[in-house]
């Protein structure tokens, strides 16, 4: 008995060692990003001795990139893009999800096949025509261009359809006996019950939009109109070897999402995990 107990403790200890080691590997890039951001260029490129901690915690790098790249505008662009994409995606997907999950209407299977087909196709195939459309509308480098590809969502429709299908049937029947029409049943009874599905879709949409690189890079190539991700790509071209400034910019770009994640951890993990690998 004593023996198995010691063995158990050893196994537990080994597991913790592995997990801690793994945590270090996951955290070091973030820590190094932050430490470099506070260094001067000469500190960051000193190898003999190698400098780990900055000698003084100066905010100069942050101030420089904040001014040069007008981060206030980048935050605003990114925030608005996320806001409108989440709004559009949740609104259209909840309606369509309800119809596909709960209602009978003509061509339902055919239309749902369109949803499934869109999910199977690699998204790069949409890119050039979408760009040409926005270009024809003379709306490149606008807030609209950032939102454009995310106005509707096949994946979100699929997700919400599953949520609606999981709800018990009697609720809706009770409401329809009370004389509510389909629109009222949707709005007052069914939609509020799929809140968790909507939250998942919202978070998923927000994170995807935040991480997206290629679309904002081509549709909003002007740095004053683009998103944080695409601005980082531009910035890397300009500050090429000034790593403290690059890291300061990267940190500024990542911090808001990381803070939100730490606050709403459970919702984030669930929201992204239900995304079924579409990331």
């Amino acid at each position: 008995m004593h023996n198995t107990h010691t063995k158990d403790t050893v196994v537990r200890a080994v597991i913790h060692v592995i997990l801690i080691l793994m945590s270090v590997i996951m955290l070091v890039p973030f820590i190094w990003m932050a430490l470099t951001a506070f260094k001067t260029v000469s500190e960051s490129t000193s190898i003999d001795p190698f400098v780990i901690f900055p000698s003084s915690w100066e905010f100069d790098n942050f101030l420089t990139v904040w001014k040069d790249y007008n981060f206030l505008i980048l935050y605003k662009n990114t925030l608005l893009m996320i806001f409108f994409r989440v709004l559009c995606a949740v609104l259209t997907a909840t309606m369509a999800g309800y119809a596909f999950g709960r209602l009978k209407f003509p061509c339902k299977n055919l239309l749902f096949t369109l949803i499934l087909m869109q999910m199977m196709v690699p998204s790069q195939i949409f890119l050039l025509p979408q760009y040409l459309m926005v270009s024809k509308m003379h709306l490149l480098n606008t807030q609209f261009a950032l939102v454009f590809p995310g106005i509707v969502t096949a994946f979100g429709t699929f997700l919400l359809k599953t949520s609606f299908q999981g709800l018990p049937k009697d609720l809706e029947e009770a409401a329809s006996i009370d004389g509510a029409n389909t629109g009222q049943r949707f709005l007052l009874v069914m939609a509020p019950l799929t809140r968790s599905g909507m939250v998942s879709l919202g978070i998923f949409t927000a994170v995807i939009a935040f991480k997206e690189l290629m679309w904002p890079m081509i549709a909003c190539s002007n740095v004053a109109t683009t998103s944080l991700s695409a601005a980082l790509a531009k910035l890397q071209g300009q500050f090429a070897t000034n790593y403290p400034q690059l890291m300061a910019a990267a940190l500024l770009a990542c911090i808001p999402m990381i803070v939100l994640y730490l606050i709403f951890q459970k919702q984030f993990v669930e929201g992204i995990a239900t995304s079924g690998g579409k990331l």
Binding site: L91, F105, P129
Partner: peptide, 29 residues
């Protein structure tokens, strides 16, 4: 009949969007 109309109305925005944003681009590419 009413259910069919509501159903089509609810999927209309998504389907229209997909046709413009995704299916036309596939054909166009």
């Amino acid at each position: 009949k009413s259910e069919a109309i509501w159903g089509l109305a609810f999927v209309a925005p998504t389907i229209t969007g997909l046709l413009i944003l995704n299916f036309y681009p596939i054909v166009n590419t």
